[in-house]
Design a protein around this nucleic acid. Structure first.
Lengths: 345, 345
DNA sequence: GGGTGTGATGTAAACGTTTACATCCGCCGG
DNA sequence: CCGGCGGATGTAAACGTTTACATCACACCC
């Protein structure tokens, strides 16, 4: 009972075959005589044999693992504050499902400190066949260093990475344009305020740019943007600054929009009658808040799935021109923009 | 440029040292002369060397990876329907954070078919130092088969596993008792209805048992339970069956409670004035729904963290009596039970 | 100045698989 | 009966690290 953990050799001996045969029973079952296969299976069962993944990976040069590296900005103490995490959960789920279909498992690792991202990425990469770098976890140095294996950057900063590594992002510009156009054309708003995200977020930058461009194109004045940090808290703060209340407030994410709506209601301002509020991201919460939040949905699971697809593609064919995938967003019209309430949330 | 990926040997040659020294530079940096270390670092940098995790794992007999195996019951097509997934996300996050502190990464894998759970678990286990089996993903056969490495079962079925494998679960009984007692003693309810979960869920079973026991102890009649499937949908269905409307409805999870409240409101029944509704789980949504849901919070992240702790403990000391951890729940009183609305959600 | 302890580094044998290649055997057509 | 063929299995050489052990240089002490 205290025996060493059994290896292929033990299984082989017990089944009266060679190690090669055991190996084949594990991977190419159909290349074996049914009787032999059965004997091997039995030996495996009896010994409680577990293959050693490291040894398999060493010779086969593949781990059947895809890694995901991201920044964890949540507060370990409180369940709340995990705003950005919802996004990550969605991507993880999308990756997991796509990977599963292709026979891969997902290895996840996070860091709090962006400076530690490189080390983590290296450590993950050394155990995977490919790696996904999420958002800020993708400094150029890391990408450079990992270039020996397939790398996909998701929602990365736009700067120099462009054009030399596979990327997946969301079409922030199209989504924002669609959203703002709705406010202008359907609801006839002309006074729009903007509550933006942190300067170092590429998403925030793209959304703001599109917001501005759309207003300009419509011949409307572009307001000075308020700059928040993507939390409900700054959304609420914004309510105090917005005075006089404009016709509509466009928020760079849902969290801030919800914080804003709540604070507005506390101040006695009616949404959407007196002011329309819209968000961006399409988090689940937006459906349940009253008024239900009009927003632009980010396809989080498809993002994860696309990353896996890109990885797997490059695993098959190494030299391929880098892909820069832009996934479409979806405008979700609910009540907070002033549209009539649909039948059900 | 099309050269083979570099190994310790290449690094060693380039740095003018032996492979052993390179290895030490990677793990026991402080055992090296600073100058040597620097030369090795440089060689690594220049060659773009990435250590091979498989090879490392092979000799060191540890992967620094902890696996998580669970059932994915969500619908890949719709973002919704991922009810149970919220729970899993919480556990994953808890695991990831706890693992990170100890230098582990998390390998996750899911299956849809419970029968495939064993194969998946084996495949994950072969690449990890320990494995967590979540809920239904833990048939006894799997646990038996994996026994060569540390296994922790989280929220498993209660049956025979008990007492021979490390487990983490939530104290459903205490939570339910506290909740029902609140309804009885604070709000004076005497007519309580119960909307339960599927028969094959150990959590559901424990909650129902505690509900019944508490009523009995209080000398109140025990109603026939309605049996739902943990979705908002069955919660809504329950609204039609509940007639005449009782004083309070206790639901086995939040999703059903929310579905029920919505349907009740549609029927013109006021919550909590005419009927109190309470849930179980403490999902985020419950905070934002109106009236805010009174519920029992499951500490999902602590569950994940506890699983990692147990795993790591057993990694250090193999023969230890099995632990059966019961994590405490927390009663969260909000508005749906009839309590005055607190200051903010 | 020989023994001896110490800290830095080299040597080479595992680690547990996979897989190219070799072998064996039975069968078929000529 | 022979040559060849193909399917099933065995043999043994990698795969890229880690690590026990050996070695070496040096300084120290009596």
């Amino acid at each position: 009972m205290t025996d060493k953990t059994p290896t292929v050799h033990d299984v082989a001996r017990r089944a009266g075959v060679s190690t090669a045969t055991v190996s084949r029973a594990l991977s190419d079952a159909d290349k074996l005589h049914p009787d032999t296969l059965e004997r091997v299976r039995q030996a495996i069962e009896e010994l409680g044999y577990l293959p050693n993944g490291a040894a398999r990976g060493l010779t086969s040069r593949k781990t059947r693992v895809l890694a995901l590296c991201f920044l964890d900005q949540g507060d370990p103490e409180s369940d709340a504050g995990d705003d950005a995490m919802l996004y990550i959960d969605g991507v993880v789920r999308g990756m997991e499902r796509a990977a599963r279909e292709r026979g891969y498992a997902i290895l996840i690792g996070a860091v709090q400190d962006p400076d530690a991202a490189l080390d983590l990425a290296v450590s993950l990469a050394s155990r995977a066949d490919g790696i996904v770098l999420l958002g800020q976890a993708a400094p150029s140095s890391a990408i450079q260093r990992l270039k020996r294996l397939p790398v996909v950057v998701v929602a990365g900063r736009c700067e120099d990475d462009q054009g030399w590594v596979d990327q997946v992002r969301v079409d922030n510009a199209a989504g924002m344009t669609e959203l703002v156009t709705h406010l202008i054309e359907v609801h006839g708003h002309t006074r729009l305020a903007y509550l933006g995200g942190p300067a170092d977020s590429p998403d925030a930058a793209e959304r703001w740019a599109a917001f501005r461009a759309t207003l300009t194109a419509a011949g409307l004045p572009v307001p000075l943007p308020l700059v928040g940090d993507f939390t409900q808290h700054t959304g609420a703060q914004a309510a105090e600054v917005l005075d006089p209340v404009p016709g509509a407030v466009v928020c760079a994410n849902d969290q801030m929009a919800i914080g804003l709506m709540t604070a507005l209601r506390d101040r006695g301002v009616r949404v959407p009658e007196e002011v329309a509020v819209v968000g961006f991201d399409g988090i689940d919460l937006g459906r349940h808040v009253r008024p239900a939040l009009t927003t632009v949905r980010q396809p989080m699971q498809p993002i994860g799935a696309a990353a896996v697809t890109l990885l797997e593609r490059r695993l098959r064919v190494r030299d391929l021109p880098p892909e820069d995938l832009r996934l479409p967003t979806q405008l979700i019209i609910r009540a907070s923009c002033g549209c009539p309430i649909p039948r059900l949330a």
